[in-house]
Simulated assay, not measured.
Amino acid sequence: MMSDVTLDSTIIEIETVRQYFETFNAGAFEATARLFAVDGVMHAPFRVDVAGRDAIATYLSTEAKGMQAVPQDMTTLTRADGSLESHVTGFAKFAGLKVKIAWIFHLNEAQAIVEVRIKLIASAQELLKMRDAQPQ
């Protein structure tokens, strides 16, 4: 799938996080999953946690097909253990809808994704539209 989103490289300062959005938007979900630590976890909205690269790739191939993620702002802090925590805000486009999203990445010292929490920042009306747009 070709991405219709061009990332602003000045927003995404960490290479792993930039690659996450690039591979995600290209529909290259196996490559997205390889950015995670072997036991990495994705905390997706409305879902049980998805753990491990294979499970993340399968989940994304099923649930994120046709979705585009557009980061607009990023803040990164270093945790006491030397790992990084990056907060990215932006929006996701899916089935003609646009919903505000926050991604919270925890990266280990090798900058592999240990976990990413994906939070919807949307009104109840926007969430209902998104739910109704998903294939059954």
Rank of each mutant, 00 (worst) to 15 (best):
H87T: 05
S83L: 00
A102G: 13
T76L: 07
P71F: 12
Y20K: 01
A51V: 02
S83V: 00
E85R: 15
R18V: 04
G40H: 04
M74C: 14
G52Q: 00
T62K: 14
G27N: 01
T32P: 03
L35M: 08
V17L: 10
M67H: 06
A26P: 04
L84T: 08
D49P: 03
F24S: 05
M74S: 14
F94H: 02
A33M: 05
R47P: 00
A26C: 03
P45E: 04
F91R: 08
D54A: 15
A33R: 02
V38M: 01
L84A: 07
R53K: 02
I101S: 11
L97V: 02
V48Q: 12
Y20L: 02
A26M: 06
E30V: 10
F46H: 08
V50L: 02
F91C: 13
A51M: 05
F46V: 11
S83D: 09
A69H: 14
D73K: 10
R79K: 10
G52C: 02
T76W: 01
G27R: 04
S86H: 01
V88W: 08
A55N: 10
F24V: 02
V88T: 11
R34K: 08
G40P: 04
V38N: 07
G90A: 06
L60W: 05
L60N: 11
K98G: 06
S86W: 08
K65C: 06
S86M: 01
L77A: 11
A92R: 01
G27Q: 07
D54Q: 13
F46A: 13
G66T: 07
D81G: 04
E22C: 00
G90Q: 00
N25R: 03
V99C: 05
A80I: 08
G82M: 11
H43I: 03
P45W: 10
V17N: 11
A44F: 06
H43V: 05
I56M: 01
V88Q: 12
T76H: 08
T89R: 12
R53L: 02
E22Q: 09
E30N: 07
L84V: 10
A37D: 06
G66I: 08
M42Y: 09
L97G: 12
F36C: 01
A28P: 00
K98Y: 07
T23C: 14
Q68F: 13
V41A: 08
F91W: 11
T23P: 00
F91K: 12
G52N: 06
F29A: 03
L97K: 10
M67K: 11
L60G: 09
G90D: 07
K93N: 13
Q68H: 14
T32E: 06
L84R: 15
R34E: 05
T62E: 12
I101A: 09
L97S: 10
H87N: 04
Q68D: 09
V41G: 00
A55C: 07
F29Q: 01
A37R: 03
K65H: 10
D73E: 13
A31E: 14
L35S: 03
T58S: 13
A28C: 02
A26R: 12
F36Q: 00
T89Q: 07
V99W: 04
F24I: 05
M42C: 08
A37C: 03
